Simulated assay, not measured.
Amino acid sequence: MTPRLRRAALLAATVLLVALPGVAAGFPGAAGAARVVGAVGGLPAECPPVDLTDEVAVDQRAAASNDVFVGRVDVATPTAGSGRVSYVVAVQRTWRGDVAKDQPATVIVDWPVGAQPGVAQGSAYLFFTRDTAEGIVADACGGTVLLPGGLTPKIAATLKAYLASVEPPPAPEPQPVPVTFHQPDEPLGDPPQIGRVLASGGAISLIGLLGLLLVSRLGRRRP
């Protein structure tokens, strides 16, 4: 191969390597693969990130949550033998719920088995959480939204406008108190027998009759 042909072959190879990424980006299969690989924290592809520019998506997520707030993750404490991680979050802004601003809050996330936790220390996140008996819990699929630039005035204003129309979750209906009947500990005694009742009534009638006879006799003795 002559030097001219060798240089032409090298130039063609270089052009091909530069063009391949653009071709792959326009190929639907390659784009789908990029979405799967780029899933936050290694979560499955059916867990798409929440688009903060989509008011409907934000409102739906907020309507199913008790608390919506932004905070910086300071401490992460994984639970041994499971995917559960407890995060200590410095709360910066609250839109819904009773999570106090400028106070630390503990958020629990139970990550799927085999997935890497999608929350990193030192980063700011928008949290959608539920109040449970165990504490404040965020869903692993959409309960945490990374804010790469932190809580900017634009994001704060957008969330305030979006969440202003979201109704609070309905309060749980009171459950009826079950009624239980118990046998008295100290019975009042057996009811009187019918024979005794009749005997008492007969004695009272006899006394009344004798009284009438006595009155009639006394009346006859008078002149």
Rank of each mutant, 00 (worst) to 15 (best):
D110P: 07
L188A: 02
L16P: 06
A76C: 12
A76T: 06
G81L: 07
A9H: 10
L188P: 00
V68R: 10
Q183Y: 04
K101W: 14
A115M: 01
G114D: 01
E167C: 04
G219Q: 13
F27S: 09
T158D: 00
T106S: 14
A39H: 00
V37F: 01
S200D: 11
D51N: 08
E46Q: 07
S165V: 08
G26L: 13
G135N: 06
P192S: 10
L212E: 13
G208A: 13
G149C: 05
G150D: 05
G29Q: 09
A203D: 04
V70Q: 04
S165T: 11
A161G: 02
L198G: 13
G211D: 08
V99D: 07
A161I: 06
G208F: 12
Q183E: 09
E46W: 06
A13M: 15
D110V: 12
V58I: 10
A100K: 15
P21C: 12
F127E: 05
V37K: 02
C141R: 02
S216H: 06
L43N: 02
R221M: 14
A140P: 05
V91R: 14
L17D: 08
R222K: 12
P78Y: 10
V137E: 15
V73W: 12
L10S: 12
A164R: 03
A19P: 02
P48R: 00
L206M: 06
R6F: 07
S123Q: 14
G97L: 04
F27H: 11
G41D: 01
P153D: 03
R130K: 15
Y87E: 11
A9W: 13
E55K: 03
R4L: 05
A25P: 03
A24H: 07
V85T: 13
S123A: 14
G143C: 04
R96I: 14
